[in-house]
Write a protein that binds this DNA or RNA. Structure first.
Lengths: 252, 252
DNA sequence: TATTTTGTTTGACTTAAATCAATGTGCTAG
DNA sequence: CTAGCACATTGATTTAAGTCAAACAAAATA
């Protein structure tokens, strides 16, 4: 377990390289660095990411109905977003990790339309949306980036609709694992092993399945030699077979 | 059938009032009218909606993989958007009517990530996205509006995920009908009757169900006196019961 | 008008996943 | 160390929706 995404155990050892990679996308300042800004422009961009916030495991970053003021760029930690129906059924709509943005759901109504909950201790950058908009007017490259972030979320959710509408349990779980591992890999973690930050029930909610089905499907994959599972630890033994299982393009 | 959304039969009779309402949202010029722009500013905004395009029934407005250059504001007609998996399964991701925007899926990758198909003869405004971005920098109110359009789509898709992940066939169809009729009502059409522009199969694809299930559920609703169905014509007899069936907030 | 074609309804049967239930596992805290 | 708790696994059974198939209706075409 050298390379794995065990934040608590290895958080102190991941000091420079890993951390830089993991956070390379995590706020707009770092993000715009490779876009050729000068020092002064960088300072301006810093205005929108000056404030940081710690969120303890289990705590809500925001809740459905909260007034919308800011987007949040995740620096460290892991979140879920979920919506609830009137009669209490809950649907996890996404899992977000370092470098990803939460809060886009609030723009349209000026209040949030889902809950964001930390699945482990986390740190976020608070980006007041009026600042984002103001600076977007000044820096076209930032404006385009904000648009891309929103468009990416729309495309991701299109893929989720395909998954929930058309795919069988095995396909869904395969696509889910591949997507997770791919995103972790882009942050410098292993391609073949990961620690799940969520329960079987949360995975089930996300994939439109019950927790028992998730458990059974994990066991099936394990028996077939496709993965090795032990509690939250998952190692991918046969990525090709996993890819074959899901004909969905998890490209984004 | 006085008030119903029969575009072909009544298109010529809907000249002034109805047409204005139906199209009140249909492009940025009309949309920004109530925002207090002066004539000169209006002319500037006209730049991005100068071009119109006709799309015949069955034709693609754009196709997955097409280079992304523009958003499209629907003036008249009805579209579906859909994504396909590698093995050919198709998922309808949305139905769009006059006043709504298509093409947001293309921003993130500079090419489109779904197909947009006209379900009846349609006219759209072509809005080159670079123009939209340019003018957004100049007019904060337009910038905010563009952000809201994207956020609304994200929230809508969150609701779809709840639907596809948690709701039963009856709930899905009830929510679908209520949503359609509500959007039509906002455009000046009847609250209680509508003409479906799509097949049972397309409804099924959208709702994650098979066409036979759609047909059976229509029949069930009809037997229960909740709706009257005859082919594509639907009249809602008991909206309350329909609302009770779906505990989903179809607010947006 | 006759004839395909396309879309819809309905019935009989199957199945994937849900539900219900029991047991197992590994933390956490006293 | 062990008691309690949250989470996970596995088995038995049920069920909502899918599948297969036939008949029907409406629209398009000849």
């Amino acid at each position: 377990m050298t390379d794995i995404n065990t934040s608590k155990t290895t958080a102190t050892t991941i000091t420079s390289d890993k951390f830089k990679v993991a956070c390379s996308n995590c706020n707009l300042r770092e993000l715009c660095l490779p876009m050729g800004f000068n020092a002064e422009e960088m300072l301006r961009l810093d205005e929108i990411v000056a404030t940081r916030k710690q969120v303890k495991q289990g705590q809500h970053l925001f809740t459905n109905g909260d007034p919308f003021t800011s987007l949040y760029a995740i620096r460290t930690g892991f979140f879920k977003t979920c919506v609830a129906s009137e009669d209490g059924r809950e649907q996890v709509t996404g899992f977000q990790m370092a470098g990803e943005i939460i809060g886009l759901d609030g723009i349209v109504t000026d209040h949030h339309n889902c809950d964001a909950v930390a699945l482990e201790d986390a740190e976020v950058c608070i980006m007041p949306f009026s600042n984002v908009e103001h600076l977007s007017r000044e820096f076209p490259v930032l404006q385009r980036h904000v648009h891309k972030i929103m468009s990416r979320e729309i495309v991701r959710e299109n893929g989720m609709m395909m998954m929930l509408g058309n795919m069988r349990a095995e396909e869904r779980l395969a696509a889910f694992l591949l997507n997770l591992v791919q995103r972790l890999h882009a942050r410098g973690f292993s391609q073949s092993e990961l620690i799940l930050r969520m329960t079987r029930e949360e995975i089930g909610s996300y994939l439109g399945l019950k927790l028992e089905t998730i458990s059974r499907t994990f066991s099936k994959f394990s028996e077939d030699g496709i993965i090795e599972v032990k509690q939250r630890y998952v190692r991918i033994l046969d990525a090709d077979q996993l890819k074959q299982l899901c004909n969905l393009q998890t490209s984004i």
